[in-house]
Simulated assay, not measured.
Amino acid sequence: MMFTRTPIEGAWLVDPEPLADERGFFARTACVDAFADHGLNGRFVQQSISRNTRAGILRGMHLQYEPAGEDKLVRVTTGAIFDAILDLRPYSPSYRQWFSVELTAQNQRALYIPRGVAHGFQTLTDLSEVFYQMTVPFAPAHSGGVRWDDPEIGIAWPPCQNRLISAKDMALPSLTALSAY
């Protein structure tokens, strides 16, 4: 695996290093020791998928607050997404900064998202599936986030004529209204 730092403190792009032959290829996508070598938690205790039926679906910006903060590894197994993260950790040198990357089934890239960093995505193709690996179980009482379109954040989402967003995500607070993290 190849690890590449992002501008968000503690967030990394993780690319497989395929061993290929005439049959196809084999590649590791997670390894506790390789993650530890980069100071990352690679012990994923819960895995989930998000299946999205069409292009233009937007989910986010979500995170789990302490004491249930989670690290996540996100990859696309079908289709393509514009993936965005936002650092909500006041102590972080990248506080209030965002980063985006295109994750696709073709590029097989994953994004490691540390605790305290919100995550969201917009599907770029019909039928996109996102695979999540988390270091702690989902804790609904600690689930929250911030509005995807908050002008104070300014994430440059891809243009979309027919964006679909849940009522729950539309009701997330702005960064200013967000209570102390």
Rank of each mutant, 00 (worst) to 15 (best):
Q64S: 12
Y65P: 14
Y65F: 12
Y65C: 12
E66D: 14
P67I: 02
A68Q: 08
A68K: 11
A68V: 06
E70F: 01
D71Q: 01
L73A: 12
V74D: 03
V74I: 14
R75C: 11
R75A: 07
V76Q: 03
T77N: 06
T78K: 10
T78D: 15
G79D: 06
I81Q: 02
I81L: 08
D83K: 07
D83C: 10
A84D: 04
L86V: 02
D87V: 00
D87A: 04
P90I: 03
P90S: 08
Y91A: 15
Y91I: 15
S92M: 08
S92H: 06
S92F: 08
S94N: 04
Y95C: 07
W98R: 04
F99T: 09
F99M: 04
S100A: 03
V101F: 01
L103H: 00
L103I: 00
L103V: 01
T104Y: 06
N107R: 09
N107P: 12
Q108G: 14
Q108V: 08
L111Q: 06
Y112H: 01
I113V: 05
P114D: 07
R115Y: 11
R115A: 14
G116L: 07
V117S: 01
A118M: 02
H119I: 02
H119P: 03
H119L: 07
H119G: 03
F121K: 00
F121D: 02
Q122V: 05
L124T: 06
L124W: 10
T125D: 14
D126Y: 11
E129T: 09
F131N: 15
Q133M: 14
Q133N: 13
V136K: 14
P137E: 15
F138Y: 13
F138P: 13
F138A: 13
A139K: 08
A141D: 15
H142R: 13
H142K: 15
G144E: 04
V146L: 09
V146P: 05
D149Q: 04
P151K: 07
P151Y: 01
P151D: 03
P151V: 07
E152K: 02
I153Y: 05
I153T: 02
I153E: 03
G154Q: 03
A156V: 14
W157T: 06
W157V: 08
P158D: 12
P158V: 03
Q161V: 11
N162M: 04
N162S: 12
N162V: 13
R163N: 10
R163D: 14
I165P: 05
S166P: 08
S166K: 06
S166R: 08
S166D: 05
A167L: 11
A167K: 13
K168D: 13
M170Y: 13
A171Q: 11
L172V: 12
L172D: 09
L172A: 10
L172C: 07
